[in-house]
Design a protein around this nucleic acid. Structure first.
Lengths: 213, 213, 213, 213
DNA sequence: CATGAATGAGATTTCATTCAT
DNA sequence: TATGAATGAAATCTCATTCAT
């Protein structure tokens, strides 16, 4: 009655479309999208070369879905709750946000950098609902947290939440890009031991000496 | 009886090796390395398809040199002197550094993002002396500036120059990556109007309210 | 317990084999056999992709049957009776035959031209009883008519019915082929306005001037 | 100085572009264009798979040139002069024209039938100067001959040269198409022994008995 | 027997690299 | 040493055919 199942799915229960997205996602997560071939994906999925065209219009569509799923998976994999305004100290919360952001970016950015210069993938991505906004979710969430702390008086009224959020996300991009461009380094970027502490300290107290205008 | 000169060099005096690097650099600067073919490079250089193999082991070596040269060229093209410790105000100098860093990154990053996932190019790049280290030169320069200001007492002694440098470079990466992944936006990223001011303000005075520990 | 019926046959009573031949025939009639896929046929028939292999050895066999059916259908669709020997004038009858032959060929030839170079289809076709013989039925019928008119004395005894039949069929082939090879022209070939009259005139009276040997 | 020559040309003196056209032409002449692959052509030419893209935009362009060259070659290969008006007898001249036309069509038509349904080839062909007009050259030449004979009084004034030309070309199309659709027959169509004589007789004297109106 | 997804060979086309000249 | 055509491996995508359900 039903048609035949793919050899790769004999055991498990999923359907092949999701299986392909997952396989492509695995490759994309580690290698990025540059130089990724349909054969690579088929091998990774353990299926025949041509299958993907039974489920997607072309390679780019599959890659876009794979990126999308990858981002969702990373987002879903985030353990714990985000810090709540007013609880603990602002410094501890900053550290928590920064560590979470670093983890998310370490997981996401590698997959995305290769997409630059692949207009077809970008176009497909634009058609998909934005799962995390390429970091915008995090950025907005963090800026919201800061605004709440400002209302509580635990953050200076003159501070600019958006600018601080950019600084936070920027540290992440910096770290991940640095590792990506250094093939000799570890796959999973590890920040310098004191970086988080030092950044938090700087963000909290700034550069200006106490008496300065 | 002397060896034949390439058609493109009939007039000038350089050697073909540098000519090829320059041509590839021009392409890399505008299009990045993704989808760049040896024929593209040969056309741009005005020489025959095969010449590059008389001067480089393979395409990747040439591309690595082109990236290298591109970074150097961008660095050399920076107008003006970097701010000097003790002169003007720290805030003005921070702003100058940030604006310079943004300009440099806007010029450099597009060329680099495609390199992720091209291990052969990355390997070749690793063999070359690091011209700016993807920001490391800037980072070190800025950290040095901050240390000097610390010695002059214009920056808090507890501040961590390396962390601040990472924040500065991170803002640049954030801005450029964001634009690169948004094909609808302008080719040359332009920061939000108040971003630079807001970042400088935050870096100077921090988040903590005056009385906070 | 009875075997499952194809979705497309739930209503009617035919069997699937004929249904497939009819569907393929419809496609062949309009597009020819070039670029025709089994999926096209299955879609047209409203059945699953694989069914045809339960009824035919391969695609070529089905296409051969479809061509065969198409020719029969065109022949059956011919309105009216063929002219009868001794009735009206020979000229009027010639004109009627020619017009009928043109109509038949306009309907048949497009389906056939692509078959050249598809040896498997040709081989299958050769195994089938010849429905009109690519014009042979018409040719024989017309030659028979001419022989009858010869016996009635309305056609010269020296005339060769087979040769005249070839001339008649040839005009058709000429017209249809010409249109097929000219993609700018109309899909349905229309003979030049006076062609039929002129051909009939020539066939009737020949080229030789009255007195010539 | 000059680049390397193709292995297949080591001996002879042509260039590869012409060599490819010739090779494709050979295949096209025998098999037609249906089912012709670029690999077939490369094999026939004895060169690498990708060469044709150094000389032609795509397969269709090469096939169009091959068809073109094939037609020209056939035209050039025609031995002897066409009959001249007023010389010999009209019957002998008709026979000569018919035999020449049959030979030309036997050589040309097989190559062309498959082109139907290959719009890209047809479009390319339309851009090329028409070498024989798919028979139009012959048709016009023969019609011109007949008009000349009419002026000389050796052909009836009422006869229609264009219609007669269509009959002549039609016989050719008939013969060749018949053979093409019959894979069991000889590759080179041979008309029935008396066909030419019978057609000439019919064309000369027509069907109408002497006394008929 | 029908289903229709999976299969995998093969088609077109690109492009890094070689090499006779 | 430059030339640039030739080479051929590989990439994307199509499609006839199979087969578990």
């Amino acid at each position: 009655m039903s048609p035949r199942r793919a050899a790769a799915l004999r055991d498990g229960g999923q359907n092949l479309r999701e299986h392909l997205i997952a396989a492509a996602g695995r490759l994309v997560a580690t290698r990025g999208t540059a130089g990724l071939t349909v054969r690579d994906i088929a091998r990774e999925a353990g299926v025949a070369d041509g299958v993907l065209y039974n489920h997607f219009a072309d390679k780019e569509e599959l890659v876009a879905y794979a990126l999308h799923a990858h981002v969702r998976a990373v987002g879903a994999g985030q353990a714990g709750e985000p810090p709540r305004p007013g609880e603990r100290t602002v410094g501890a919360n900053l550290r928590a946000y920064l560590e979470r952001a670093l983890a998310v970016h370490a997981a996401i950015l590698p997959a995305f950098t290769g997409v630059v210069g692949q207009p077809k993938v970008l176009a497909r991505l634009a058609e998909l609902p934005n799962p995390m906004g390429g970091g915008d979710g995090l950025r907005a969430e963090f800026a919201g947290y800061l605004r709440a702390e400002q209302r509580l008086g635990r953050v200076r009224a003159q501070a600019r939440p958006e600018a601080v959020a950019t600084l936070l996300v920027g540290v992440c991009h910096d770290l991940v890009l640095g590792r990506l461009l250094d093939p000799s380094g570890p796959a999973v970027p590890e920040p310098a031991p004191d970086l988080v502490s030092d950044v938090v300290e700087t963000l909290l107290h700034g550069l200006a000496p106490p008496g300065a205008g």
